[in-house]
Design a binder for these strands. Structure first.
Lengths: 191, 191, 191, 191
DNA sequence: CATGAATGAGTCTTCATTCAT
DNA sequence: TATGAATGAAGACTCATTCAT
């Protein structure tokens, strides 16, 4: 029907269904039916169920990573950039809950039986991104001089995951969640 | 037949396999074979695949929650108890990686197609646990007076999840991880 | 619980369930659960599912045949006895729809795969019963002299089956159904 | 593969097996094996075991009803048409005993547990068919003026069922069965 | 590009039955 | 008498995948 965007529509439905139901419980026919094409059409475009799954993940991984890179390289204070880093992830999650759920799903995938997604390399890339930011912060005095990458990861990525979890599952979140998180990241809880 | 209650052995193998492979890709026969019983025996004891899954989760939820309650009610400073709270979760994770993986899996489950596990109620109970701790800390001056529950959750639970993720996936973690986390929780990253 | 009538209660529930659901779709556990005993108890009393089925049928076959014998041997006109013969079957059907359904079910059983119930011998016995009645009628001038058994069977048993079918399935039937049937049996439809 | 439409061959074997063994004791695999195709092929064409069963019944219901309509609308006396009505049913039964057995089976089905076949609507349609015939007969003086539909049904359908039962089960029947039945229908048994 | 038809392997689940207690 | 626990066999059904068209 609609020109050559069949591929895109398959990816969109696959993202939605893999995210909603998981890999094992989403059948190739589920996806085909949702798109309105027949079964072999999917195989024509993606080769296998696994290929479709991996491609759906890859597309979204790439999209969000690109946005994070852009944010981290902005000319702004480290605090402002950390804030933007958190915000971008929340916004991306809210904008496409299915895709976000799929990423979470892939991250916490079982250690066998499902397609092995290369989440580690993207984690490392994001770690490098944050690491650079922390180093800048330490250098320009915005951060404590003894802050190491591991500390920053715990302080920043932990709350991000929690927040995304809440958004994906539509749990109530305060309006000023991002500011609260940044505040805690910088000041801690201690008196 | 062999030693050990059959029911317990089924639960143990189910925990392992559901954790390793996920719900959808673990077959009832997988579990039965691992235990060394036949298929209907599982149905005799748990009624269905879903019943087995839910029971496996329930048992471990309960076990860890009980330990957390004990730790939070100890006579010690809030800082020490937060430290113990974090440590208990890491230890439990390391002690039974399969069960921990299963809990993570259930937490990040797809929103349909798999058994609906009541993770929310246990989350709320743990939130209350931490909330009480934070209130104590604010009252006795260990915590900043403006700390609210949401802040504490982000600061504490976020790093806990990240750490458990690392332990479950056997990623390298520093020996002093718990101390680093507590330090960041209390002092933040800011200069 | 209740003394020695366990056997009777099993038979009653078996009759009901076999009648309602058929042999193939009624499980031994269905019956056991309905009675409130465990599975092996049924085996203790009846040896097998097939034994239970056959016994349930036998009991009801016997009961209705005895009543028919009694009716046919009454000192009355042939017409009155045919009327009673029809009425007894309708009454027995209405009194225990489950049992009646079971008898119908057994009669129209598939020719393989289910326990072979000896319906033929009871049919023959009832044929003899009616045959005697018809002979009497021919002899005493109540029936046409050329009436043979086959004619009588068609005229009498056909409507009886139809009527029982209606009663079992709770279809509406006229109040004077029996009289109408007897009238048609004797006078036919022709002008 | 082999000649003949696969769908038709499945229907034929399904009719035979459901008729011979009943619904509950006929497995999908039985049918597939008899046709020489694999299990999912049946699902591809009929969606479910129930769908196959209902379709098999529907096809034969339709076929016989069409023939009865044709017979009843012939230009002939009411008696001749009733004779043809009876004969058609016997012939159809003898021509395809499996299908006839299936129709009987479906008619006397248990009231739960098996697919609900809509036998009632076809019964009503046949009742209308006969009703029209009876009304004609009363109008043109072939039938007694006080004959109502219920009388006719009992007199005609009863013997038809008995006769079909005999044919299906290959019991001995006299050569002039149809004439005997018509004779009894019109003249009754009475002197 | 796309499909209608087909399949081998596997899914969860239930069955009638048994046996030590 | 009755049961708790277990089983081998079979049930209906779905899966990812293929191939001729």
């Amino acid at each position: 029907m609609s020109e050559g965007d069949v591929r895109e529509r398959i990816l969109a439905e696959a993202t939605r269904l893999f995210g909603e139901q998981g890999y094992g419980l989403t059948s190739v026919r589920d996806v085909a039916r949702a798109v309105g094409v027949t079964n072999p059409t999917l195989y024509y475009h993606f080769g296998s169920k696994e290929g479709l799954y991996l491609e759906a993940i890859r597309v979204h991984q790439e999209a969000i990573y690109d946005r994070l890179v852009e944010v981290v390289n902005r000319p702004a204070s480290v605090r402002e950039r950390i804030r933007a880093y958190v915000q971008v992830q929340f916004e991306a999650t809210a904008a496409n809950r299915s895709a976000a759920r799929l990423m979470m799903y892939a991250n916490h995938r079982p250690e066998s039986g499902e397609p092995q997604v290369d989440m580690m390399s993207v984690h490392l890339k994001m770690e490098q991104l944050l690491g650079k930011l922390f180093a800048e912060g330490v250098a320009n005095g915005e951060l404590r001089p003894d802050v190491e990458v591991i500390d920053g990861l715990m302080a920043v990525t932990g709350p991000v995951i929690l927040g995304c979890y809440a958004v994906v599952n539509q749990l109530p979140t305060p309006d000023d969640l991002v500011d609260r998180i940044v505040d805690v990241i910088f000041r801690g809880l201690g008196a």
